[in-house]
């Protein structure tokens, strides 16, 4: 589904934020991306949701090599990805309903075709009574749930979340994680960038990607390197 090969990335003429990043996400997988602040987690997610271009290396998304994919075909790939931004990025002039329905609207779907689904989804995240509220009137946790509902409303094959529990209390954080696990069980691949220790403890080590100083290691790879070092 997603394959990175020796990907490097820099902003403008600045230093490389990501170096020789290689990994694969299989369909239906569930992974966490961890690392200290400034390690490049958000930049890596931006590459996956096609908001940035790599400065070197190759990226395959849904069996398409991105560098050779025509620009006009990228929106169709983006629609297969749901993103929960760290700062939610809700549109303040739209209501909760309109924010969540936006991915369906940009697909030129008629409101009648998605209205019931959006309402059901908002009820599922506990916001069935806030359909017409504007984001400015919502709490941090409510905004988070609107952002999640927007990310999943178009039934994406891949769900990316950037620090989804960073702005909410532990109880809501737990509910959000259960929501992601449920979506994963339904077949959606999930990649969550987090440095929340409680989340990491709930996920098997082989599902952990660790990013430090722009380099990515998997837990398995790290263990292998450690074992190799011990043998030497």
């Amino acid at each position: 589904m997603v394959r990175f090969e020796n990907v490097g990335m820099r902003y403008g003429l600045g230093p490389e934020i990501l170096r020789d990043v290689s990994f694969t996400l299989e369909p239906g997988s569930f992974h966490l991306l961890t690392g200290p602040s400034g390690a490049g987690k958000t930049s890596l997610l931006k590459l996956i949701y096609l908001a940035e271009r790599p400065s070197r290396g190759a990226i395959w998304m849904f069996d398409r090599e991105i560098a050779t994919t025509p620009r006009e075909e990228l929106p169709a790939l983006r629609r297969r990805i749901g993103v929960v931004f760290q700062d939610f990025r809700l549109l303040d002039h739209l209501t909760v309903f309109e924010n969540v329905a936006l991915p369906r609207r940009v697909m030129n779907e008629l409101e009648s075709s998605y209205r019931a689904e959006v309402e059901e989804l908002l009820s599922w995240v506990g916001l069935g009574n806030r359909l017409n509220a504007k984001p400015a009137t919502l709490s941090g946790g409510e905004k988070q749930r609107v952002a999640i509902a927007r990310a999943v409303v178009a039934k994406p094959e891949l769900l990316l979340a950037d620090e989804p529990t960073g702005n909410v209390d532990p109880d809501i954080g737990g509910r959000i994680m259960r929501l992601f696990i449920e979506l994963n069980k339904l077949g959606t691949s999930v990649l969550i960038a987090t440095h929340d220790q409680r989340i990491m403890e709930r996920v098997p080590a082989q599902r952990l990607f660790r990013l430090a100083e722009g380099r990515l290691t998997t837990a398995n790879a790290a263990d292998a390197v450690l074992a190799e070092a011990k043998r030497a």
Binding site: Y49, L50, A51, E72, P75, A76, R78, R79, V83, R89, L91, L102, P103, V106, M107, R150, A154
Partner: peptide, 8 residues
């Protein structure tokens, strides 16, 4: 945001 969620 609209660009990132797949708007042409």
């Amino acid at each position: 945001v609209v660009h990132m969620i797949g708007a042409r």
